[in-house]
Nucleic acid binder design. Structure first.
Lengths: 237, 237
DNA sequence: TGTACATCAGTGAACGCGCGTTCACTGATGTAC
DNA sequence: TGTACATCAGTGAACGCGCGTTCACTGATGTAC
């Protein structure tokens, strides 16, 4: 009747959630071994000691299992970012440090879950297109970053350089969606910084920095601090 | 006898090169349909009207075909970047414009060859590890960008802010490899900008900007100009 | 220039494998009266 | 509270498929003398 999880749910519902979770856990394990393209329902079932056909009670198809993993990954990363932000705020950190704390959290999560990271920020899985269900989960990291910048701008009225005309409209349109109080130049800088953050993280996770960058924590930390300055978060005095 | 391609090669050698090229072309076509993980020797052979076993005269295994495609992709992208640079130099453009021209070339190439882009900058193909053969080809874009910055710095002695200690050594080490005349702060900024460039490109190619950024050329152009400033290429007066 | 031999491209059958999905079924858990 | 029925989880066999790779082979192209 109720679709929410609660302590008073029946045994059947509880069992269903446990098995669903076990399937996803095992699928995540296999993701780490073979990547998304080779994720196999049969292999998951085998490892779980069930008949492969039994999985169809939980996921109507392989793609639906993949979708669930994608949403979980976005949510897991989003939660990590939000937690890092909350912690930094609670510790009374300045916006710049809140920003870098969130970036570091994204990096840490990605390094700890490289295959889930690849699932959501790597090449799209061929023949699979993520349904709209994923977009809310996917937006969480971006929203945290925007929140930091918005709070820092409260009443500050920081001045920004001029924007090319086409970009001004662009910035205003995006701002209208997510942060009406931010100037367009800040918004476009934010979106760029957001993509650039994942450039830095992706290069490290996917090995592009091998034999090039050695002290990666220091490098990353420095780079995202620069990004923070780029979106108008001021150097601490 | 000679391993180089020449007009005087025998018919057999010429045929071999043509068939090799045909195999790679067909493989690239299939890459675009199904992605790297599903690239299949049998499907390539089928499409070419040969027995699947015949491909083994040209590539000892599926992985070797993949490796060839990866190197070709890096080289194709590298050549595009180098051509854009040469053209900008020939047109007497300033370093900032050389930089943005190269970035635009990278973007265009990626948008025109999204699946090859995914092959080299997306998730690593599971179970496949790129041999060292690829690293020279992979470095070409980075070297073009470094060249621009190095030329712009000739005798300029632009002053840079201080670097954290660990990063200074890091910057000096990388500089020693590729550009001994550049200050460490510039080098680390370069490496970051390099990764960030591919963050911007990757987000666009992989659809992360869907429903967020509309005027993508203008956005990209603005963002990479900012990157250029970040590595010390001065605004044009 | 002609002949004998070696090299090479390509064939087709076969090996062993794993995959996603369907289907009719059994037995246990839940629900309505 | 007890019984009859509906719902659901899980089974095991089967379908049809495509894959990478090996192997013994044929016939054409190149090479040495």
């Amino acid at each position: 009747m109720s679709s929410t999880t609660s302590a008073t749910q029946g045994a059947r519902a509880r069992a269903r959630e446990e098995v669903t979770a076990a399937i996803k856990d095992e699928a995540r394990k296999q993701l780490a071994d073979d990547g998304a393209a080779k994720l196999s329902l049969r292999a998951v079932a085998r490892e779980l000691g069930m008949a492969s056909s039994a999985l169809y009670r939980y996921f109507p198809s392989r793609d639906d299992l993949l979708t669930a993993l994608i949403i979980d990954a976005y949510d897991s990363l989003g939660a990590a970012a939000e937690a890092a932000h909350a912690e930094a705020v609670a510790a009374g950190k300045e916006p710049v440090q809140q920003w870098t704390a969130v970036c570091e959290a994204v990096r840490s999560w990605a390094l700890e879950h490289p295959h889930e990271y690849a699932l959501i920020y790597g090449s799209p899985v061929p023949g699979y297109s993520a349904p709209d269900t994923t977009v809310r989960a996917a937006a969480r990291v971006g929203l945290v970053l925007i929140g930091i910048v918005r709070d820092a701008h409260q009443g500050r009225g920081v001045a920004y350089g001029p924007l090319p005309g086409e970009l001004r409209t662009e910035g205003e349109r995006i701002a209208a969606d997510v942060a009406p109080d931010l100037p367009p130049a800040t918004i476009t800088a934010m979106v760029a910084a957001w993509a650039q953050l994942f450039g830095l993280v992706g290069f490290e996770v996917f090995g592009q920095f091998n034999r090039i960058v050695e002290d990666r924590p220091a490098f990353f930390s420095h780079a995202v601090t620069q990004l923070a300055h780029g979106v108008g978060l001021l150097r601490q005095s």
